[in-house]
Design a protein around this nucleic acid. Structure first.
Lengths: 148, 148
DNA sequence: CTGACTTTGACTTTTACTGACCAAAGGTGT
DNA sequence: ACACCTTTGGTCAGTAAAAGTCAAAGTCAG
């Protein structure tokens, strides 16, 4: 098996667990008994943005290379969530939903905060209690759909 | 973890509480077991004006280094807007506000879309018409405040 | 055989850290 | 006042520890 393929597999495996893998170039090169620049070759040939990955790195002491898998199915995931929201949505469920979306890196931190504050009980204080879950459902569906 | 990062974190933590952190170079260096000039390195590499910080210092007995975080216009602009929102906010005004914030690049496109859709008439359809402007005002104030 | 893909290694650039030496502010004795 | 010492912080150049680049050499399917 090709060296590049083994390295690719290794990184893919790391990304299996989390969609964020951090490696140290020299260390990895040593483990695979290859030259460090081989790692760069693998990264530029198999982990490109077109293939759904973001590679960030830092040189110098304590440097690193971080590979992030982009969720291409952002829209799919969002549509799924949107469809799962019925006519009403209570705040606890909403909070869980947002946190899930955030930790799956489907939405970013700012969007999460905006959604959470929109759905907060305090924000909807002026809405008659019996209507709140209805309004919250509408808010979330309409806000999430803008992010597709 | 890098020494520089630990020092950065330490200073950031101080700035969390207040916009203003005062340190003594030698003392801090000793606490982290490094040479004093390491502190300067961290300050010049991570607390530059471009990154939104001002560093002032004074030598001699009772000397100090003071790091001040400059709150970018963003917060000021947002606070200004937030304060200008009264108890009620109609949709037209809200739309103008958001577009202004966006064209001044104080908020990004996604945030603008989220705010607009939260305030839309259709989104707030379940809210009794007489309450809508109240709810919209609350929504905007609470959402904008998360972006400060 | 040829062209695309792999592998290698020499050289470059960036970042982190250290230490020797410098500069300024305050304190003190005359 | 002044000279001198102490207590701070500042600078800079050197070393080390990463990662990046690029072109030459190797491999392999068609």
């Amino acid at each position: 098996m090709r060296l590049s393929d083994m390295l690719t597999e290794y990184i893919m495996d790391m990304l299996e667990a989390e969609d964020n893998a951090e490696i140290r170039r020299n260390e990895l090169a040593e483990r695979f008994g290859c030259v460090p620049s081989q790692i760069n070759y693998v990264l530029t040939s198999r982990f490109t943005p077109e293939q759904g990955y973001i590679v960030e790195s830092r040189r110098g002491g304590g440097g690193y290379i971080r590979i992030t898998r982009i969720r291409a199915d952002k829209s799919t995931a969002l549509m799924h969530i949107i469809n799962s929201i019925g006519n009403e949505l209570d705040n606890i469920t909403a909070q869980i939903m947002i946190n899930n979306l955030k930790s799956a890196s489907i939405i970013n931190d700012e969007a999460a905060r905006l959604l959470l504050s929109a759905g907060a009980e305090r924000t909807l204080g002026a809405v008659p209690p019996l209507l709140r879950d209805k309004v919250r459902a509408s808010l979330f569906k309409n806000m999430l759909i803008t992010m597709i």
